[in-house]
């Protein structure tokens, strides 16, 4: 078992390293799609922390993705804060929002939490559209977001941005792997399986769940920053409820708590539609059918989490 697990890790590391070479093999529009894959993969993994691992039905995850994007957009365009500085701030604010919004709702079970998070998402989008204090730019959003600079080097080419996204995806993947093997990550699984049994073992449900929401939101905030930089513009339409539904579906279709599953889900839900842009009309129709088909044929997801051994 141990040897096999190590192989999975090696395979992942190899694939990631091979991915670094993508800008040499692809034209710029494909490099851009690869960059979006990395960004959405981070977002989907962050949803997996809350939904797949902790078992909390978060159907408003686009909120934290959006907070990350807006924090970076506002700080960068109005106060000229460099992107590499807005990035930790975006993560921090998204985490704070995740902890604050979830704190009162954490005792809600299953479907009620799902409905409440739908409500948060709707309110967030409406708030961004209504341009409170004139800082969110209303429906048009904010344009003219700068590019990150590293050691005085402007990362403005599509390839440079891809590498930034890809390296950060690599780091997030490492964090997700560590999560599996630490007490916090295990506590999430105990709570997901049986909250009462977990609490009699001393798991502090409120603390652990709040932390899970904060971590998931922080990673989504990171992805949101990268998203704002990649597009150099943000607008409310990128963070609507449908985006949350897609993130939710990625985790379930891919496989809850399964890193390869979530990555495959991201590729299917975000990248494949880019390929079939020409058939835009039929895209979501086919998509809906595919979602039903996958669930009926493989209710546990395409690449479910393997039962891990000692």
């Amino acid at each position: 078992m141990r040897g096999f697990k190590l192989d999975g890790l090696k395979l992942g590391a190899l694939l990631w390293a091979a991915g670094l070479a993508l800008p040499f093999a692809l034209d710029s529009s494909w490099v851009s799609i690869a960059a979006f894959f990395a960004i959405y993969a981070i977002t989907a993994l962050s949803e997996d922390v809350i939904l797949g691992r902790a078992g909390m039905f978060d159907m408003g995850h686009a909120v934290y993705f959006g907070i990350g994007a807006y924090v970076t957009a506002i700080l960068n365009t109005t106060l000229n804060v460099p992107i590499l500085l807005t990035l930790p701030l975006a993560m921090l604010l998204a985490a704070a929002a995740g902890a604050l919004l979830s704190a009162p709702l954490i005792r809600l079970r299953g479907d009620y939490l799902l409905v409440a998070t739908i409500g948060f998402n709707a309110i967030f989008v409406l708030a961004m559209q209504n341009n409170p204090g004139g800082i969110t730019g209303g429906s048009d959003g904010i344009t003219g977001i700068g590019v990150p600079s590293l050691f005085g080097l402007q990362l403005e080419s599509q390839s440079a941005m891809f590498w930034l996204d890809w390296v950060l995806l690599g780091l997030v993947l490492l964090v997700m792997r560590n999560l599996d093997a630490c007490e916090f990550g295990r506590a999430l699984r105990y709570l997901k399986q049986d909250e009462l049994a977990a609490s009699t073992l001393g798991v502090d449900a409120r603390k652990v769940k709040t932390l899970a929401f904060a971590l998931g939101a922080a990673l989504a905030g990171l992805a949101g920053t990268l998203f704002a930089v990649q597009l150099s513009t943000v607008s409310p339409s990128s963070f609507v409820f449908t985006e949350s539904v897609t993130l939710f579906a990625i985790v379930i279709v891919g496989g809850q708590g399964s890193i390869p599953g979530v990555l495959l889900g991201t590729a299917l839900m975000f990248v494949v539609p880019q390929i079939f842009r020409g058939l835009a009309e039929y895209r979501y129709f086919v998509f809906g059918i595919a979602m039903i088909a996958v669930m009926v044929l493989r209710p546990q997801g395409l690449l479910p989490r393997r039962r891990s051994a000692a």
Partner: peptide
């Protein structure tokens, strides 16, 4: 009330 998806060790 054991955790269903986990091994005895876990």
């Amino acid at each position: 009330r054991l955790f269903a998806d986990m091994s005895v060790f876990e």
